[in-house]
Design a protein around this nucleic acid. Structure first.
Lengths: 250, 250
DNA sequence: CGACGGTTTGAGTCCGGTCAATTGTCGTGG
DNA sequence: CCACGACAATTGACCGGACTCAAACCGTCG
């Protein structure tokens, strides 16, 4: 889920980073766990000590369903899809992650999902065992995680409503709007949405097929609600109309 | 989600309850937060101090989407449906709760769902403000909550897979099996499932209609996979076949 | 026993899926 | 710079599973 911006605490409490890499990863810790509100420097310092950097190519799977859940991740840049597979290959994408999002909260022994980079991705990785020890020393970090998990849960329930009860149109519209909201919180233009995932990914996220996704986009464009620039850029042309559509008003 | 049984810690650390009522509610706190592993008596005692009992009639709504989230709940007995509504009345049930389950984890200011009793229900209620203060004093309780939330999250993702990618048949079969599992952990017969919800509730949980739910039950019976005794008792007759069906093996 | 709500069953429709062909996009190498 | 290949996206025709509408059938409780 979306996490809020620039952790001021970080820039106050730490010396200037030696390079851009370190800087990015430094922020990553703050973003994952401080959630806008300042976190005591002690906690941040401890987190910094156990964090590890990881680069992932586009298309690379870095979490595999069923594997031992050894790490907790935080996305520094790029985008990621998280999904579950059925034996016969059917796929449900349970979420897309962007800069600032975390992954691996599940305190199960094994991952219950897979994760694959949609674009080149920079990650911060926290070994779970060390993170857990850290949580014991700094309960405030645990508090943050609980808040994050609660928000995740609320979002998951919203997605259930979408999957179970919305039409194809409504699903697509809700999706575009939520990406717009997300883009706005990250600091971009809330009306211009850049799709880093394929139609097939969108379909697997919304419980549809690529064809239906494509048709829905076309229809929305022909009605003047959105504009398309190539396949991956969507401009929200009539937000109000879309917000009505998402809730079923026509 | 399912919580494990009899917290031994409780009976060791507290004097025998003066009546059945108190006894039930005493256990409720333990169940909600100790999750099988023993919890220090100090924490249990603190929880006991802030808990409140609440009885709810069948059909009564005790949590309303949008209302201020003042309480954290734990179901002592009975069953509950948790759901979200759309403006036009479409409904998505996001979960059913049974004895031992908790509700209200969301650390948002307002509830993002409604909850209604399916049967007469006994609840333990913890005022959120007091609970939060308690979490600060006893981080171990927070740890338990985080674990619970993680499990909830995994279950929610599994439900997304069901809603987005499974056929009506597969949905019903998965549902029966999960109720069976749940019944087994509570201590009942894992093969005999008692449905406390209507067909319409099941439909709103699985993203179907009552008619489709009914037809699926009928078909499963005619094929010999289940037996029906009235509308609310389901006997799992061929678990193996059902487990295959749930995953799409024909 | 009768009434009411929930459930089952039936007939017909439609939304979204399937299959297939075409068009578009982008990176690569001639 | 353009031609090519590979893959993604779009479009079209058709199909079918789940929905809708409607009627009949319980079961439970006054």
């Amino acid at each position: 889920m979306s996490l809020a911006i620039a952790p001021i605490a970080a820039s106050r409490h730490f010396a200037p980073p030696v390079n851009a890499e370190a800087h990015a990863c430094h922020h990553c810790a703050a973003r994952a766990l401080s959630i806008c509100s300042a976190m005591p420097s002690q906690e941040l310092g401890a987190l910094a000590l156990i964090r590890q950097r990881q680069k992932v190519e586009a298309g690379e799977t870095f979490v595999d369903e069923g594997e031992a859940a050894t790490h907790f991740f935080n996305v520094t840049s790029g985008s990621v899809k998280v999904y579950k597979l059925m034996a016969d290959g059917r796929r449900q994408i349970t979420g897309f992650l962007f800069a600032g999002d975390f992954l691996g909260l599940a305190f199960n022994d094994n991952y219950t999902y897979s994760a694959e980079a949609l674009t080149p991705v920079n990650l911060c990785r926290f070994p779970r065992r060390q993170l857990e020890r850290l949580l014991e020393r700094f309960p405030s970090v645990e508090r943050k995680l609980l808040t994050l998990a609660s928000n995740e849960l609320a979002a998951a329930q919203e997605q259930m409503l979408l999957l179970g009860r919305k039409s194809a149109q409504e699903k697509i519209v809700s999706f575009i709007l939520s990406l717009g909201r997300r883009a706005a919180t990250i600091g971009g233009d809330g009306d211009l949405v850049h799709l880093t995932m394929t139609r097939s990914d969108i379909a697997d996220y919304l419980g549809l097929t690529t064809e239906t996704v494509s048709r829905a986009f076309t229809l929305l464009r022909s009605r003047g609600f959105i504009e398309l620039d190539g396949a991956s850029k969507v401009l929200i042309a009539d937000r109000e109309a879309l917000e009505d559509l998402a809730e079923g008003d026509a």
